[in-house]
């Protein structure tokens, strides 16, 4: 029996120094592969598979055209279907007869490629933040973020939780905060109206701001997401 005990002890000692080990899964570590003609190829799963370029600012065009395009962007906001936290149950009612966001050109889209608005609806655990960042970065340039609920503003009731973030705008730029410990759909519609105004006034250029101080955002993100097995900017 005693060899079982000290074997257990030895195991627990080895686990103790867990903090230094990297969290990258074996699949994502560098590996060697034999090519058909026998030569070996070194594969770096991050730099070989992803374009990994830094985002750059995309300046808006001059006056009238940009105003007109902003008008079009305001009138047709396509929201990415990505629900986090308890607020995502507030979004479906928008599609029902009672609230009917279609009237305002708001539509749900399945892929980040085709969507312009990203609704962060509630507390954001570190795990979800990692996926939110990838989806946000994959959205094309004029993109807006609506943050619902107090959890995205100051951590809400999970302010002291070890796994949820307190201030969303430290990690991704936010256009419109909609306060409430889950705002009702009407509040959400009001948020959309606010967003429309911002877009029409051309003040919804958070995407460029994200590109400008990208490193700072990325540093914050990487501080809390330890197993960052993705490229810096997810195209």
């Amino acid at each position: 029996m005693n060899d079982k005990i000290n074997e257990m002890l030895q195991r627990s000692a080895q686990n103790a120094n867990q903090s230094e080990k990297s969290f990258i899964r074996p699949e994502d570590e560098e590996r060697e592969v034999i090519a058909p003609d026998g030569s070996t190829i070194k594969i770096n799963p991050i730099y070989d598979y992803f374009s990994g370029k830094k985002p750059q600012e995309e300046k808006p065009l001059n006056g009238v055209v940009e105003k007109f395009l902003n008008w079009a962007r305001a009138e047709s906001i396509w929201v990415l279907g990505f629900g986090t936290g308890c607020g995502s149950i507030e979004i479906p009612p928008l599609m029902t007869p009672r609230f009917d966001a279609y009237r305002f050109g708001v539509q749900m889209r399945a892929t980040p490629r085709q969507s312009n608005a990203f609704i962060i609806s509630g507390y954001l655990s570190v795990k979800t933040l990692k996926r939110v960042i990838r989806s946000y970065e994959q959205m094309p340039s004029p993109k807006y973020v609506l943050a619902l609920g107090s959890c995205t503003i100051n951590g809400g009731m999970y302010y002291d939780s070890y796994s949820t973030i307190n201030r969303l705008d430290k990690y991704i730029p936010v256009d419109v905060y909609i306060a409430g410990c889950m705002p009702r759909p009407e509040a959400l519609l009001a948020g959309f109206m606010k967003l429309k105004e911002l877009i029409k006034e051309g003040k919804a250029e958070k995407a460029n701001e994200y590109a400008r101080n990208f490193d700072e955002y990325k540093a914050n993100q990487k501080k809390i997401i330890k197993d960052w097995n993705m490229p810096d900017y997810n195209w």
Binding site: P45, V132, S135, N229, W235
Partner: peptide, 19 residues
């Protein structure tokens, strides 16, 4: 247009691990 590589695809928030 920005040239993408093979894993820059929309993969429901995750990153593809192996081709």
């Amino acid at each position: 247009a920005h040239k993408l590589k093979q894993f820059d695809i929309v993969f429901s928030g995750e990153r593809p691990h192996r081709p």
